[in-house]
Design a protein around this nucleic acid. Structure first.
Lengths: 214, 214
DNA sequence: AGCAGACCGGAACGATCCGTTCCACTGCTA
DNA sequence: TAGCAGTGGAACGGATCGTTCCGGTCTGCT
């Protein structure tokens, strides 16, 4: 007779616990593919009924919020891991590569505006931007990053990579790496290059995504 | 008494002719901002009734198709103009700058899949890709374009720029130019750079956009 | 002058989609 | 074995949107 915990395999409880995972994974896959997919698509992909979803989340908005927050936490985790890398430039490039590979940008930015954020998300977003700043600072210190690049340019880079999209997921990853390689080449210091044009992206210039869409 | 032609200002005919323009412009603005905007939004933006739209176009699909075809023709015109530039590299960069500024990429690619294309569009698309190839070839000849860049990489570049988007249109243009500058830096030959990773984008790898969405 | 009809605004309709609720059912768990 | 947590999926109600339709206006021709 399984107790309330400790058994990972059998029984109704275990099935429910497994569904927790399956549903979250399905939601990630579905909303990554189409940010406004219907909730039924998530249930279908997970191979469960709609009730299994509504038992866990108050509604679509709640699911989206948790998914987005999850992406934010991944971002932070990847950034912290990258900061542990001793080489300044490698920390920077490794960070971007991992974020792009994990498609975290789509998980966060593209889902924003579809729900009202919690204040904890606000705190995490702040922390995320601090970490990103640290990575850019170190990249500058390494001398390999163009001096006129600012933190907010990371947003442009990630957006550019997330925009690459073909039906096959693995191929998408490859093409995004190619895109990132080109961008990193352009971000690197070059002997005789003109300065980047226009005022650099400003802090908060992309915040409109986080405000509710009207 | 105005005759049937020659007068550009007065009368019902003239108003109708003006509406032709106004509606097309409104449609461009609206669908550029949101590819699946309702048709009523176009009418509202144009300051006309819905009838004025349906008098000119058989339906939404027809409007979208003509808009997209229009974008394709712009693309071709810009490419032809660029090819007249004597300097190989300048032709290449000038072409990209103009396409990005005019937001032609959004007009074509992002609208594809929402209508069944005509064969004339197929011909124009072919011509467009020939012109793009010529521009890339000349850029290669100039020696300033990395040898491992292929025509299809243009699609990635344009996608990256089109992905940049803030509420203000003029600011969007500025940021896209910045993005393009970074990308062009990465596309340029550099003394000691690793080759671009992965197989390059293949011909027709982005064609799925042109097939009807299921 | 007068009328036929081009042209227009916008209400109304019908189809579709989607979030959410609800209920019957299943098989653990105590 | 009784009860309930967990579930599948039909059904509902609201919202959205493409399209049609009708009444009204004004023009351009006769």
């Amino acid at each position: 007779m399984p107790t309330t915990s400790g058994n990972a395999l059998a029984g109704r409880r275990a099935q429910a616990a497994r569904n927790d995972e399956v549903i979250l994974e399905a939601a990630r896959a579905v909303f990554l593919d189409d940010p406004k997919a219907p909730i039924a698509a998530v249930a279908e992909r997970a191979g469960v009924g709609i009730s299994a979803l509504y038992r866990r989340y108050a509604g679509k908005e709640d699911l989206l919020r948790q998914l987005c927050h999850d992406g934010l936490r991944r971002y932070i985790a990847v950034a912290e891991a990258a900061l542990a890398e001793p080489d300044d430039w490698a920390a920077f490039t490794g960070f971007l590569t991992r974020i792009v590979d994990a498609d975290v940008h789509s998980l966060t930015v593209h889902l924003a505006g579809t729900f009202t954020p919690t204040e904890e998300m606000g705190r995490d977003a702040l922390r995320a931007s601090e970490l990103a700043t640290a990575l850019v600072d170190r990249a500058h210190a390494s001398g390999r990053l163009r001096p006129d690049v600012v933190v907010q340019d990371l947003g442009l880079v990630l957006e550019a990579c997330a925009a690459v999209r073909v039906p096959d997921a693995e191929r998408t990853r490859q093409l995004r790496r190619r895109q990132l390689a080109v961008l990193l080449g352009g971000l690197s210091t070059a002997p005789d290059s003109d300065p980047l044009p226009g005022p650099p992206p400003a802090a908060g210039e992309f915040d409109w995504r986080w405000r509710l869409r009207e």
